[in-house]
Design a protein around this nucleic acid. Structure first.
Length: 192
DNA sequence: TAGGCCATCTGGTCCT
DNA sequence: AGGACCAGATGGCCTA
């Protein structure tokens, strides 16, 4: 069997599987967290069609030309890219797909994490770095509350009045005290 | 328009 | 050897 054809078949399978998995890339997806941002749920096929790389004018298998549906088009595109390619390019293309898949899974995890840190409904989407910093600060605050043994609400009240003792609280970035108020509301709602 | 954020590609390194 | 992971480079989009 032609190695290129075999490789293409494997890629087809991979891309198709990935399309089916859209929105379920993360091992945390069982949390049922819905992303508000559709771009975070791009399929690999979408990404594939956006890829500017490896556009080489090559022959297209005539047996694929008549395929009417999207899968046929995708196959044609892949066929164009993969046939008559240097083996290195084929390997590189496969590596790019794996890398995109890996990044998607990371982004999916970020989406899950965003769902677990307190933000305002009207607040703009947290960046990745803000998500990480806020998560760290949130965990630190929860730990402080646990260690203090105080009532969570009164602890947050105390923080509002006197400021924080712990320097990690300096990381409450973008919204400052407003975010603390939101935390307070969150704690009241969740711990009441 | 500059800066921030992001997706993607790429080559290097490490691991299995 | 092949895949996973990582970091640098690049270009697009958006916002102040």
């Amino acid at each position: 069997m032609d190695p290129n054809f075999q490789f293409q078949s494997q890629l087809d399978t991979l891309l198709f599987d990935c399309s089916a998995m859209t929105g379920q890339m993360s091992p945390w997806s069982s949390f049922g967290c819905q992303s508000v941002f559709p771009e975070a749920q791009l399929t690999f096929t979408d990404l594939d069609s956006q890829s500017p790389q490896l556009e080489v004018g090559a022959e297209v298998d005539s047996s694929l030309v008549d395929e009417p549906h999207e899968l046929g088009k995708r196959r044609q595109q892949q066929q164009r890219r993969l046939t008559s390619h240097h083996p290195y390019k084929v390997q590189r293309y496969a590596a790019n797909i794996r890398e995109r898949k890996r990044m998607l899974s990371i982004n999916s995890a970020f989406e899950e994490l965003r769902c677990h840190v307190p933000t305002f409904p009207y607040e703009k989407r947290l960046s990745k770095i803000d998500t990480l910093r806020l998560a760290i600060a949130y965990i630190a605050l929860l730990r402080e509350i646990l260690m203090s043994g105080c009532d969570p609400k009164s602890y947050v009240d105390e923080c509002m009045k006197n400021g924080y003792k712990n320097q990690t609280n300096a990381i409450w970035n973008t919204s400052g005290k407003m975010r603390v108020k939101h935390m307070q509301a969150t704690l009241e709602g969740k711990l009441a």
